[in-house]
Simulated scan of single mutants.
Amino acid sequence: MPDFADLRERMIRRQIELRGIADPRILEAFRAVPREAFVSASYAEAAYEDRPLPIEAGQTISQPYIVALMIEAAEIGRGDRVLEVGAGSGYAAAVMSRMADTVIGIERQHNLVQVARERLDRLDFSNVIIIEGDGTRGCPEEAPFDAILAAASGSHVPKPLVDQLAPGGRLVMPIGNPNWVQHLVKVTKAEDGRLQQSDLGEVRFVPLIGEEGWRDG
Rank of each mutant, 00 (worst) to 15 (best):
S126A: 14
R137Y: 02
T188N: 08
H156P: 00
Q182P: 01
S153P: 04
S198F: 02
I104R: 03
L195R: 08
V113A: 12
E107C: 06
V187D: 07
P174G: 05
F125K: 07
G135Q: 13
I104P: 00
A166M: 09
E141T: 04
S153G: 15
L123A: 06
E118R: 15
Q196W: 06
L120M: 12
P178G: 03
M173Y: 01
D121C: 04
P140Y: 01
G201M: 07
G105E: 13
F145N: 00
L195Y: 07
H156Y: 05
L123S: 09
V162M: 11
S153E: 08
L171T: 02
L123M: 14
H110P: 14
L161H: 02
L184A: 02
A147E: 09
L165H: 04
E107I: 06
S198I: 15
N127R: 15
R204Y: 09
D199Y: 05
L112Q: 13
L123F: 10
R170S: 09
H183N: 12
N177Y: 07
H110A: 15
N127E: 11
A116D: 13
L200N: 03
G168F: 11
I148P: 02
Q182E: 10
G201S: 05
L112G: 08
Q164C: 04
G193F: 10
E118V: 03
Q109F: 12
L123T: 07
A150F: 03
P144I: 04
V181M: 08
I175R: 00
R204F: 12
T136L: 11
S155V: 02
T188K: 14
A190Q: 14
V203R: 07
G133T: 00
Q197K: 13
L200D: 03
N177G: 00
S198L: 12
F145V: 03
K159R: 14
Q197D: 01
P178A: 04
H183A: 02
A147P: 07
A116L: 13
L195E: 13
A152S: 12
V172N: 04
F125Y: 15
E191V: 06
V115Q: 15
T136K: 11
I104H: 15
G138F: 05
A143R: 07
S126W: 14
G168S: 10
R204G: 01
K186S: 12
V157R: 05
P158A: 09
A190D: 14
Q164F: 03
